[in-house]
Design a protein around this nucleic acid. Structure first.
Lengths: 306, 306
DNA sequence: CCCGCCGTTACCTATCGGGTATCGTACGAC
DNA sequence: GTCGTACGATACCCGATAGGTAACGGCGGG
């Protein structure tokens, strides 16, 4: 049995006339008769009762008709589903992300965009640090990662694309002797006490900053390390020291903390999307496209207060 | 797109290997490659990603797989459904019946048999007299009739088959002067008052009885006509007269009525199934078969008191 | 009683599904 | 590196079969 038989059967069942059905199918009438006969032989029972003025459906034919229609509809549905999946309009995407991706607002914006415009895409979200993301990508547990520091061997097997640039600014206690100034040079911070984000989570940014300090002739005196941005900013608010943070954190306006830019630091934290080289998933591509768009917007929109 | 393409696709998707899939399908590998390529062209997107060690499903292929399986299953279901309908195991039957068909117990028994053993057959029941049944059959509103007096032109376009024979007996008021006798000859009733069932509903039985009376040398004196069997027997109980009734009514044992057989009357009411000549409905055939079986049983089982 | 409608049968053609032989390529063994 | 191997793809052939044309048969209406 082939779909052709079902298409022909439905045509005859609807016309109740071999001649008209054949015309509708753009074939001659005798081949149609033969296809129907073959179908009846294969199904195992007559589906039509031939009358002098046309044909009638047998009980078996009447029962077969709706099922045949369903089969044809299901076949079309199969094709449509595949096409939609190919266009990335349906499917599932598993995303690993560092929490800074949510702080910057990039991830929430993309998520709400997907819920709104592509509701038939299932999204699975996993908060994990850069190392975990690399492992999960390698094992095929996630399709996309969002992180700041791609693994060193990334180029070999990953595609990395920066989607959002977050300049690093300075957080100082409000009662700090330097809080009065609007802007800083990096070298003016040589004597300060620093609270730093734990290096192993975002090593490249940490290293960049420290390297910049060295070129200014000092090594930052680290009095405390913190494992999360919230903790970090709280420590600053408690007067433990000053800290370098991504500008998007500024929106939370923690009590007792002032935010100042350090123009000559010019270190950025780049949020990057990473995925396996050779992954052609259209859903992943759509997600990256959305990330790019949102990342651009937010890079412009987030106010750059002094 | 044909079901063949889907069968081949599923095989390759399950094996993830053209060679093994081809073996499973009992065809060579090159034609399989070609069919898959044709399918991909028709669907409009690649379904497999060819790798050196075999193939992987693309996202479109993954989406297509369950839908293809559904399509194949639906096609099989269509065939099974047609076969079951051909065997009369599923479908719908519209039955017209006279109420005597329920009194005799024939119809209720067949109905419970169908509910029990063929639950997927839908039954529509319409109480109607013989004339209405003939019209409904002609118009295709019912598939089967159950009646006592087939229309006169029945042989031309109907098949009639007696399924249950109900001998006619006599109902007499208990205080009637003849109630003491166990049995009657027809001629002994020459002087009685009769309550008769309205002729137009079951004309042939009425006429048979009256004809028999005539051969015994008398015309029954009809003092009342009744339109339903209940009314008829009630009138007998009220002493209005005696009445000929089908034996199966005896089971209701109406107050004040005695039932006596009239051996030399030998008129039977035959419950007949009627359907259109040329109707090959398997469900109808099953129903008639069940009617025959139940009719035989009940003809024997109903006690022949009196 | 004949004509016409309609489905079937008979036979031909051509498309296409399936087979065999061969090729191109990526990976692993050495 | 080189060779061998395990894939799927390609090229080409053959036979099955879908589809076309012509003729046949049966039932109903004029």
């Amino acid at each position: 049995m082939e779909l052709r038989h079902l298409r022909y059967f439905v045509a005859v069942a609807e016309e109740l006339h071999f001649g008209r059905a054949a015309a509708r199918l753009h074939i001659a009438q005798p081949p149609l008769s033969r296809q129907i006969r073959d179908l009846e032989r294969e199904v195992g029972t007559p589906l039509f009762e031939r009358t002098p003025r046309g044909v009638d459906l047998t009980p078996a034919g009447s029962a077969f008709l709706p099922e045949a229609r369903l089969t044809l509809a299901q076949a079309e549905r199969a094709q449509r589903t595949a096409l939609r999946a190919a266009k990335g309009e349906t499917g599932r995407l598993r995303v690993g992300f560092v929490d800074a991706a949510t702080h910057s607002g990039v991830l929430p914006n993309v998520l709400s965009f997907f819920r709104m415009h592509l509701p038939s895409i299932g999204l699975s979200l996993f908060e994990m640090d850069a190392r975990q993301q690399a492992e999960a990508l390698r094992d095929g547990r996630i399709d996309l990662g969002l992180l700041h520091s791609p693994p060193l061997d990334a180029d070999r097997w990953l595609r990395v694309e920066a989607v959002f640039t977050d300049p690093v600014i300075l957080a100082v206690p409000e009662d700090h002797r330097l809080a009065g100034r609007a802007r800083f040079t990096l070298s003016s911070l040589a004597e300060e006490s620093f609270v730093l984000f734990q290096r192993d989570v975002a090593p490249s940014t940490s290293d960049d900053i420290i390297a910049r300090c060295r070129t200014e002739g000092f090594s930052p005196r680290v009095v405390q390390e913190a494992a999360g941005w919230n903790t970090l900013v709280s420590l600053v608010g408690a007067g433990v020291g000053v800290a370098f943070i991504p500008r998007s954190l500024q929106q939370y306006q923690q009590q007792g903390v002032a935010y100042r830019s350090v123009p000559d630091l010019s270190v950025d934290m780049e949020l990057s999307a990473v995925w396996k080289r050779g992954d052609r998933s259209p859903v992943r591509e759509r997600f990256v496209t959305a990330l790019r768009a949102v990342g651009r917007t937010r890079s412009r929109v987030v106010p750059s207060k002094g």
